[in-house]
Amino acid sequence: MSFSPQVLAVQAYSFRRRMLSWKALPALMVALVPTFMALVFRFFAPHEQGGTPTPYRMYGEILAPMCLYFVLPFLSMLVMLPILGELYEKGAIAYLLTRPAPRWVPLLGLYSGGLLALLPLAVLCATLPALILSPISGGVELRFWLQRVVFLSLVLWIGAAPYGALCLFLGVWSRKAVLWALALLIGWGSIAGSITGPLRALSPHRYLFGLLRNWLDLSNTLGQFSVPDPDPPGTLLSLLVLAGYVLAFLVLAYQAIRTRDVL
């Protein structure tokens, strides 16, 4: 028996709920932060003085890592955390859990709908700064800009998958999901994944940064948002580890949805 039509039905609902209502506004504001920074850079940075990065470098070495550090965790939280948490808080999850379908059906539908809702936000987050900076980038060809925009969008969206699955799990498992999400996404994600130490290897952030380096052709050197990785992960390893995290968090969320009471 195939449950994909059921999953798709919930996915469409989840997407509508996150994207086509005022609830999308906070996430949209967060996604526009790099655009704001690009505007400041374009109109207020003293480009003629030495030491100011070129617009192309600004995009790749400052804005893109900053998106991973700050924008991605908050976007994931704002979009994915309420998907299940809100339904539980209001008791509305009861309607979905008393359908003749296994509980992983609404879980997967809600998750994939949220992930879809994150795609336009990731694209927006990567595209608008490039549109602002590329006209002043001098000799950099458009294809290089396009390449960076596409890959940054992709890394952000791929990053939303494990972080989103983690948020989904936290939304069911804990009534203090926001605190847990902040601790885990910022602490275990952005911070642990970018500093040296044993936790780094376990953090999804390290693998996302690995993808960013490989796809945006960034150097593995000390920069404003980059601590060199002595053993940088390759693209395949990064994708596999991130997929593993998605699977692990979804399994945990499924266990939580089977055992948490709707009160």
């Binding site: 609902y13 509508r16 709920r17 209502s21 339904l87 209001k90 008791g91 509305a92 009861a94 309607y95």
Partner: peptide, 8 residues
């Protein structure tokens, strides 16, 4: 509990 699928 109320329906709470407000957007629908």
């Amino acid at each position: 509990d109320d329906v709470h699928f407000e957007s629908e």
